[in-house]
């Protein structure tokens, strides 16, 4: 019996295209899973119970708002009346990356067509790292957008910082930032990087990343899904309006 020669290339071609349509269209509910949706107050919400139950202090009953930078998406607040998924499956408005306000004008002219990204881990649980790495798998395929990973800050345009800033990594983070050529972008990815997340009371947490180096874009999540990180990158490169639509 003649056996088909096992050639990787043919197998690769046979599998077809898996890649997401984002950012040409809104992401699907597979790409932004329920667990990545932020808590939303309903009419029957009990703000003070929410604040008491929240392990990271993300819920502010005085201002009646939820600080997504602190939220670890644990859903303990569902008992206080917060909802997460409206059940429609639509992910319009589900993306949450935001600018910090120090983002330079003209980013689109400089980074719009080519963006080299480096990731630095300053004390994460590894989940954010894995989600960043996932951006290069066939489902998200970063390179189709002209974005590439690099492993030296000397080649990097953008720095993705993940994890709760550890005392052992403060110097390394600053050194990495210093080594990047200007102009440069910094993305603070995940609750730990933005606010310390669940670890904000732990001994191994120094400060939010934004206190150590200037941050341009924050991507909330625990961990944010790859599409949400991608949104952050596009936003940093000036390729998205803040509403999440392609510019």
């Amino acid at each position: 019996m003649w056996d088909m020669p096992k050639i990787w290339v043919f197998r690769g071609l046979k599998k077809g295209i898996l890649t997401t349509a984002y950012p040409k269209s809104q992401p699907t509910s597979e790409e932004v899973p329920t667990a990545s949706l932020p808590p939303r107050p309903t009419d029957a919400v009990d703000w003070s119970a929410g604040e008491r139950g929240c392990p990271t202090g993300a819920i502010d009953s005085g201002g009646k708002r939820v600080d997504l930078g602190r939220c670890v998406y644990c859903r303990l607040c569902s008992s206080a009346g917060f909802t997460f998924d409206d059940g429609s499956g639509s992910r319009a408005g589900a993306l949450q990356a935001g600018l910090t306000g120090r983002h330079a004008a003209g980013a689109r002219r400089i980074f719009g067509r080519s963006l080299h990204v480096m990731m630095i881990d300053v004390g994460s649980c590894n989940a954010c790292n894995l989600e960043v790495l996932n951006l290069s798998n066939p489902y998200y395929d970063l390179s189709r957008l002209g974005i590439a990973f690099t492993n030296s800050p000397k080649h990097a345009d953008a720095l993705i910082v993940v994890g709760a800033l550890n005392p052992a990594m403060v110097d390394a983070l600053k050194m990495t930032y210093e080594s990047m050529p200007e102009p440069k972008l910094v993305l603070s990815v995940g609750a730990c990087a933005i606010s310390g997340g669940i670890f904000r009371s732990a001994e191994g947490f120094v400060s939010p990343v934004g206190d150590a180096i200037p941050v341009d874009v924050v991507v909330p999540g625990c961990p944010p899904s790859p599409v949400q990180i991608l949104e952050g990158l596009l936003l940093a490169a000036g390729r998205l309006k803040e509403t999440g639509a392609m510019r």
Binding site: I120, D171, A172, M175, E178, S179
Partner: peptide
């Protein structure tokens, strides 16, 4: 000007001194 100035940084040593 934006992007055109000489800035000296130490050599990159994988985040270590």
């Amino acid at each position: 000007r934006f992007g055109l100035r000489v800035r000296r940084t130490p050599g990159w040593f994988a985040g270590a001194a």
